[in-house]
Amino acid sequence: MSTEALNPTLPILTAKDFASDQEIRWCPRCGDYSILAQVKKVLPTLGIPREKFVFVSGIGCSSRFPYYMNTYGFHSIHGRAPAIASGVKISRPDLQVWVITGDGDALSIGGNHLMHMLRRNMGLKVILFNNRIYGLTKGQYSPTSPVGQVTYSTPVGSIDNPLSPLCYAIGSEATFVARSVDVDIKHLTFVLERAAHHEGTAFVEVYQDCNIFNHDAFLYATDKTVKADNIVYLEHGKPLVFGKDVKKGIRLNGMHPEIVELGKGVNEDDLLFHDEKAAEPSLAFLLSRMRYPEFPEPMGIFREVSAPIYDQCVTEQIDAEIKKKGVGDFDNLFNSGDTWTVE
């Protein structure tokens, strides 16, 4: 990828080159706009020709995304984008394939496909727009809606225990796991860039505001007056510190994280240091379990490790078999085994 970036014959692309001629139909002030804008910003920096990008989505508000990108795109069916994208990627490992999905699409109807896409570690880039609601169908609770949430299908409050997309991803052996939020443009761009450069499957959860059906669900993580206490930015090799004056930190007490005040007998060395390259996913999983309001919610790269890449393995096996058996010859195949001649 990086060699391509240096290729002087490639035309210089800008965000505008990635905009399609279609009118964008999301509600005003929907968080999707920001994510679309950041993606358009990141793609031209990758040094990949435009025709090599494919965006695959499922069903939901966010899944309209491919229509707004002037790349190859496939707006498919509910929950199946991971499987469709897998078909594209196995067929054409040379393409950069992005999967656009939502909390209902990926975790409810498409939960099975998501797990298997992640564990196979194809070179897919996945953005899960988490707005904790079904937007397109007009406001039912989703697998990430908190208990007690009142929606059209839970008029007296949801009783479903929600799950964290990142816990799921880590449990599914994802090799790149990250989180950002729609309004934090800089951070989102950084995370998307890192995802784009990861060799295997990259999974990014983006907290996304549904302005209509679940407005301000992530206010705790976006409001300037409170967010410093409610989120903690992950930096590889650095201690987990947060708070308005960066006076708070996360320390491990046995297997449990705890919030500590820096100063009063506690210094940075006592804190939990982030290691996104840890071979074991335990630390990443522990971080993914930290939920507001008990803990600040981590933002950034939880995990980036390298592992065999499925689509490349497919090609390697084919090459190895050709080397071993020679290029398949149909006449030889047809004439193999017991044959006989009728005069």
Partner: peptide, 28 residues
């Protein structure tokens, strides 16, 4: 039949197998 260049994919379920076929068809 890998030496014939055939790519096979044992999917996680029937739905995924069909969906992957849609993706592969799109990819040519």
């Amino acid at each position: 039949m890998k030496n014939f260049g055939v790519k096979t994919f044992q999917a996680e379920d029937e739905i995924a197998a069909m969906a992957a076929v849609c993706g592969a068809a799109f990819a040519g």
